[in-house]
Write a protein that binds this DNA or RNA. Structure first.
Lengths: 386, 386
DNA sequence: GGTTGTATGTAAAGGAGCTCTACTAACAAA
DNA sequence: TTTGTTAGTAGAGCTCCTTTACATACAACC
C-alpha cells in the first residue's frame, strides 16, 4: 500500500534557501520584505516603471503601486516623469530611488593611526571625506574620539542621515559588540548599542575585512553566489559572501585568515606564533622583503608569496566552490606576480571544475572598500537593500 | 541640517539572515512558513501542547490551534491525550508529529558496486533496508536499475511515502540534475525530474557527501552554526552547513575536497594529478599503507595523514570559523591517531579563538549517514523540516 | 480622422492570515 | 466553596495581496 500523498502533504514553499524555518512570519513582515524587494530593484536597476517592477518582482501592478506610494511618502523614491522613447500603450512613468535625498555616515577603524570617515549618498558615492588622528588612544578614550568624530561627520551631512556604519578590526558579533580587538584595547564593548544611544540614530558595527567583502559585493563587480574578499593592509583579513549572505562563523570570527600558519618554521608573528600568513603577506612584510631588490627579484619574491597564498586558499576554494576571489590592497604589491602566482597555484591544486570556475581579481574600490562596506551595512540594515 | 529619519524610514524586518531579498512573499508563503515552523518544533522537541508551541514560536494560541488543525487534517500530526503530571490550570493536550504514519524512501549511490536503499520513518528510523548489485552498469542502464530498485523500495513501504531522496556522487545542481558523475557515466542527467516523472512522487537528488552533512546535522549531534562533515570512503568528500543552510557553491561543487593537492610530489591520483587528498586519506589508500605494519607504525602513519588533513583544513576552519568538524568513515582507521593529529594540527595552525572554538569528532550515524541525509532532503523539501 | 490594439496605472471587492479581546473549560490551592 | 491559573476556542478586526474592472494614453492602421 504505497500511496503517494503529494496531494495531501503540501510542498513547503521556502522563503529563503535556508533549511530551518526559525522565526514566525507575519503579514507585516511580508510587506516589509516586498518593500525591500522593490527598493532593491530600483537600487540595482535604476529608474523603472511600476509595470516593469511588477513584472520583475512577480507582484501585481496594484501592489507595486501601493508599495511605491509608501516609498514615495517616506521620501525614498520619486517619480521621474514619463519614460522617453515612443512605444505603444500608455507611456510609463519612471520611478527611481532618491539616492541623494538621504545620506549615510561611514567610519573605518582599520588604520591604527587614523580614523577615516565619510558621508555617502545611498548610491555609495562619497560626498565628504574626513580623517582624524588617533594619537595612540585606545579603550574608552578611543570610543570617545570615535563618538566626536562621528558627530563631526553627521554635522557635515547635507541631507538626513539614515544611519551610521562602522568597520572595526577584531571580532564583532551580530549585535555590533566588539568581542575583542586587542590593538584597540576593546573587549566586549557594545559599540553599536553605545553609539546608537549617544547619537540617537541607528549604528551598525562589523568587522572591517568582513564588510569590505560587502562593499565589493554591492558596489564592485563581484558575483552573486560565492565570493571571498581578501584585504591586505597592516594585517590580513577576509570576508566571505555566499548566496548574498555574509558568513559570520560560529564565534563571529569568520574570515580571520591572517593568522593561519602557512610557512613551517617561518618568522615570528605579532600574535606569538610563527609562520602566520601575515608574516609574509601584510603590506609592511612585503615592503620590507622587496626593499632594495630589482624588479626581477622582487617579482620572484611576490610570486613566492602568491604561491603560499594559493596553497592556503586552495582548500577554501574547493570546500566552498568559490566563484571569485577579490584582493584589496596596494596594487603595486599585489596586482601582478603575486596574484598571478596565487591563481595559478590554486588552479594547480584543485580539481579542474573548481579551478576553472574561479576568477581572481583586484578590488575595484581601493581604499574606500571598508567605507563602502559600512554603507552597505546601513543600507541593508535600515532599508533592506544590498 | 543633520536630521535623523529613524521615524520615517522603517527598519527592515528581515525574514532570513540573507542580505538580498530575492523573491516576493505572499500571505500563503507566510502561512507555509509558519506551518513548517510548528512542524519543526514538533520534530525536534517531541510532543508539545498548543500553548507551548505558541510560546516557542511567538505566534498566538489562536493561530497555533489553526495551524495544528491543518496539520492534523493532513495526517502529519495527532493529538496524544492529556499531558501527564499535575499542574495548575487546565490540563494541556499534547500534540505530536506522526512520524510513522508516513515514510520516506532513500537511496545511496556512493558505492560503485552496490545500490543501498532504505525505507525510513519521518523520524529517520530505518524500517526496511535493501541492496542491489550494480554489476558494472552505468549511464542509462544504471538509471533504469535505480528506477527498478526505487520501485521495489516503494513497494516495501508500509505507509504512504512522502518522497524519495537520492544521494549521488558527483556534482548535482539544485534541481537535482547530475551535472557530472564520471564513474557513473552521467553527464547532465536530470535525475530528479526523470524519477519524479516516472514514479509520480517527489524525488530529491543531491551530492552524497553534501547530504551526509545534512544527515549528521539533523539526526546527529552537530551544532547549528557552522559544521563541516568529511566523508571518507573510496574517495573523500565533504558537506558544509552554515546557519542551517547547506553550502552549494558557485557551480554546485562545494565540498569537493578529495582532489585538493595536499602533498607536493605525491602519488599519482585517479584524476590524473598528483598529491590529492584522496591519495592519502581514502579508505583503500589508508588500508594499503598500514597493511602489515605493527600498531605503533600504523598509528604513526595515520597521524601523519591526520597532520596533512589538518594542514589542508586549517584555512577552511579559519575562513569559516567552524564550530565542528565531523568525520564519517571506518572508525578503526579514522578514530584515534588520525583524528587526534588532525585536530592538534588545526589548533596549532590557527588563531586561539578559532582553534579553541572547534570540535572534531566521529560521525554518529556510520554507514547510514547518506541514507539519513537523503531523508532530510525529503523532509526539508516536502515538509520544510530539518 | 476614427477605430483598433496595447500598455500603464488606479479603484473596489474579496480572500487569506494573523492578532486582540473575550469566553469556556478544567484543574490546584486555600 | 472560592480564588487563581492555564488551555483552548469564537468572533471581530486589521493588514496585505489578488482579481476584476476601468480610465488613460499612445501607435498603427484603414
Amino acid at each position: 500500500m504505497t500511496t503517494a500523498v503529494t496531494g495531501s502533504v503540501a510542498p513547503a514553499r521556502r522563503l529563503s534557501s535556508g533549511l530551518r524555518p526559525t522565526a514566525k512570519v507575519l503579514p507585516e513582515h511580508a510587506r516589509a520584505h516586498n518593500r525591500s524587494l522593490v527598493l532593491q530593484h530600483l537600487f540595482h536597476g535604476g529608474p523603472t516603471s511600476r509595470a516593469d517592477l511588477a513584472r520583475a518582482t512577480g507582484l501585481t501592478r496594484v501592489t507595486i503601486s501601493d508599495l511605491v506610494a509608501d516609498l514615495i511618502e517616506e521620501g525614498l523614491v520619486e517619480e521621474l516623469g514619463v519614460r522617453p522613447g515612443q512605444r505603444v500603450g500608455k507611456p510609463a512613468i519612471l520611478v527611481g530611488m532618491r539616492t541623494t535625498a538621504h545620506q549615510i555616515v561611514s567610519v573605518d577603524l582599520t588604520d591604527d593611526a587614523v580614523l577615516r570617515g565619510a558621508v555617502l549618498t545611498l548610491a555609495g558615492d562619497i560626498v565628504e571625506r574626513r580623517q582624524c588622528a588617533v594619537d595612540g588612544r585606545a579603550g574608552d578614550e578611543l570610543i570617545e574620539l570615535l563618538l566626536r568624530f562621528t558627530r563631526s561627520l553627521l554635522a557635515a551631512a547635507s541631507a538626513p542621515v539614515v544611519g551610521v556604519g562602522v568597520g572595526s578590526p577584531g571580532i564583532v558579533d551580530a549585535a555590533g559588540t566588539v568581542l575583542e580587538a586587542p590593538n584597540r584595547r576593546w573587549y566586549n564593548v557594545p559599540l553599536a548599542a553605545h553609539l546608537t544611544g549617544r547619537l540617537g540614530l541607528p549604528v551598525h558595527v562589523a568587522n572591517d575585512a568582513n564588510i569590505a567583502a560587502l562593499g565589493e559585493f554591492t558596489f564592485g563587480a563581484a558575483s552573486d553566489t560565492a565570493v571571498l574578499v581578501l584585504t591586505v593592509g597592516e594585517g590580513v583579513g577576509a570576508g566571505i559572501v555566499l548566496d548574498g549572505a555574509r558568513v559570520r562563523g560560529h564565534g563571529d570570527a569568520a574570515g580571520e585568515l591572517g593568522h593561519v600558519t602557512v610557512v613551517d618554521h617561518g618568522r615570528r608573528c605579532a600574535c606569538g606564533r610563527t609562520g602566520c600568513l601575515e608574516t609574509v603577506l601584510s603590506v609592511p612584510a612585503l615592503r620590507r622583503a622587496i626593499d632594495g631588490l630589482d624588479r626581477q627579484d622582487s617579482d620572484a619574491h611576490l610570486a613566492s608569496v602568491g604561491r603560499v597564498l594559493g596553497i592556503a586558499l586552495a582548500p577554501v576554494v574547493s570546500a566552498l566552490n568559490l566563484a571569485e576571489i577579490v584582493v584589496a590592497g596596494p596594487a603595486d604589491l599585489l596586482d601582478g606576480a603575486l596574484c598571478e602566482a596565487a591563481l595559478d597555484t590554486i588552479r594547480e591544486r584543485t580539481m579542474p571544475v573548481i579551478g576553472a570556475g574561479l576568477a581572481l581579481r583586484m578590488a575595484t574600490l581601493d581604499e574606500d572598500v571598508v567605507l563602502a562596506g559600512a554603507a552597505v551595512l546601513v543600507l541593508s540594515g535600515q532599508l533592506g537593500v544590498s
